[in-house]
């Protein structure tokens, strides 16, 4: 039964079905499977499946994004069952990500955000054309470990340095 539940979870994550994935997590927790085992053998396996499909050209950006969303919900559900110390010890990290000011070319950023989410990071995506201050405000709000700024444009690249400089300047 344990194996079947974990396999079901992997498949729902790979398919990006967040609602069903969370239901399986609830079922698995009720069956007494340790939260970390659910995350590792169900969640991680699901991420591996979708990553492999993407590398082989069988899945594309939308599949990565919905699988990432499903994984985020699964991680939140599992962490809600753990105490603070356990959660902190198992969380990979919190990322604030966005496309630098003046840049709307977000497809690369969306791939990175989806890959981070399917690999267990808590991702806060600020979207496109994000002002320098917004990155820092959001990072403070969610206590982020990483600020990830993306740009395709040479004229938006200076804003990446501006984020770093502002972080230094405000200490």
């Amino acid at each position: 039964m344990k194996e079947a539940l974990l396999e079901k979870l992997s498949n729902f994550i790979a398919e990006g079905d967040a609602e069903e994935a969370v239901k399986v997590v609830e079922e698995a927790l009720a069956a007494g499977i340790p939260p970390l085992e659910i995350l590792d053998k169900g969640g991680t396996r699901g991420m591996d499946i979708v990553n492999e499909r993407y590398d082989n050209g069988e899945a594309f950006l939308p599949e990565l994004v919905v699988a990432g969303d499903a994984m985020t919900e699964v991680v939140q559900k599992i962490f809600s069952q753990m105490d603070e110390a356990e959660t902190a010890a198992n969380k990979i990290g919190t990322v604030v990500i966005g496309q630098a000011e003046g840049d709307v070319h977000d497809i690369g950023k969306n791939i990175v955000a989806a890959l981070l989410a399917v690999n267990g990071f808590e991702v806060h995506d600020l979207g496109i054309d994000v002002p320098v201050k917004k990155f820092i405000e959001k990072a403070e709000e969610v206590n982020a470990d990483i600020i990830a700024c993306s740009t395709l444009l040479t004229t938006s690249m200076p804003y990446l340095e501006d984020v770093v400089q502002l972080l230094k300047d405000i200490g």
């Binding site: 000011e101 003046g102 840049d103 444009l153 040479t154 004229t155 938006s156 200076p158 804003y159």
Partner: peptide, 18 residues
């Protein structure tokens, strides 16, 4: 091509430099 600078100053998109 695209200019790396304007009168030696870095161009930031959406600003008076642009």
């Amino acid at each position: 091509p695209t200019l790396a600078t304007v009168y030696g100053r870095t161009v930031r998109s959406g600003t008076p430099y642009e």
